[in-house]
């Protein structure tokens, strides 16, 4: 198959090519509505390329400030959760400081913007997300109660990895299943036997897809441990979402378009905000602003 002129047989992401292209066409309708969202689309595409640039720059020691598997065939940087697991298993404090320093440095400036502007998994969710809003109050309460789950997962990773001396999260990670296991199998279908964690990993991957199709940014809201790592910086980062309450008509458009279902405009400094700027783009009164404070 050679639709785009590239050699699909040698491309580890050939199996995602058509779904991504179809998703991009649908998503473009939303992105094209404002210059800010067009910029975000270009940013997400660029980071998808940068993330997979090992064929140009090799494997570096830099750490992604978003979620992506470093075992992906062309991953250029290191997975933050993988680094956290290794730091915990070996009690390597310098590795932990390096990770926290990298996350802190980026998030003090940009907050959780990497989720909205750079993360390939976020990009995938933006394209697959059917803009499913939670309507019933009961479901909304459940959604709010589930949010701390990602912090619990993050906090559990170091002790569990230390005690088991194993990469406990990675063994089951659905993002690894999507971006590393499936591409490896696609590149060399007969070259592997299935490991002990293959079936659970694929089950988690199935659950991951159900979640992100059923709920806009479902992974970011409830389960992403990298998002949990970055979230606390949202309150103090230089890049902030601000509201001019004099202009705000309380029409609810911002709350309606927010992929993270944040209670806007009141909770504009929420740790859940991924700085995607959709509320800014859709506000008819121009009351919201995304900028450096």
């Amino acid at each position: 198959m050679a639709v785009c002129g590239f050699n699909c047989g040698a491309c580890p992401f050939a199996y995602l090519c058509v779904p991504l292209a179809v998703g991009a066409v649908f998503a473009w309708k939303r992105y094209a509505r404002s210059p800010l969202q067009k910029k975000r689309f270009v940013s997400q595409l660029s980071f998808l390329f940068i993330t997979n640039a090992a064929f140009l720059v090799g494997s570096t020691g830099l750490i992604y400030t978003y979620f992506y598997c470093w075992e992906s065939p062309v991953a250029a940087m290191a997975c933050p959760i993988g680094i956290l697991e290794h730091a915990s298993i070996e009690l390597n404090w310098m590795l932990a400081v390096y990770l926290l320093g990298t996350i802190a440095l980026v998030c003090m400036v940009f907050g959780r913007a990497a989720c909205g502007w750079a993360c390939p998994i976020g990009f995938l969710q933006d394209m697959l997300g059917m803009r499913r809003k939670i309507k019933s109050e009961k479901a909304q309460r459940a959604d709010q109660r589930m949010r701390p789950l990602k912090y619990a997962i993050l906090l559990l990773i170091p002790p569990v990895c230390y005690v088991t001396a194993d990469m406990a999260y990675t063994n089951l990670c659905p993002v690894g299943g999507l971006t590393a296991t499936l591409p490896a199998l696609a590149l060399d279908p007969g070259g592997y036997t299935l490991g002990v964690y293959f079936v659970p990993k694929m089950l988690f991957l199935g659950g991951f897809f159900v979640l992100i199709v059923m709920l806009t940014r479902g992974w970011c809201r409830h389960l992403c441990p990298v998002g949990a790592m970055m979230a606390p910086f949202g309150k103090v980062s230089l890049l902030q979402l601000t509201v001019d309450m004099d202009k705000c008509t309380h029409c609810g458009a911002c709350k309606n378009v927010c992929p993270m279902d944040i209670n806007l405009p009141e909770d504009h400094a929420s740790t859940e905000c991924i700085r995607c700027g959709q509320c800014v783009s859709y506000c008819p009164a121009g009351a919201l602003h995304l900028g450096f404070t």
Binding site: M167, L194, G195
Partner: peptide, 19 residues
């Protein structure tokens, strides 16, 4: 830590791949 991170990145974790 950068060097350690790079060496980890260069080592394919078969457990991670589940293959």
């Amino acid at each position: 830590a950068y060097v350690t991170s790079q060496r980890l990145n260069e080592s394919t974790c078969l457990g991670c791949l589940a293959l």
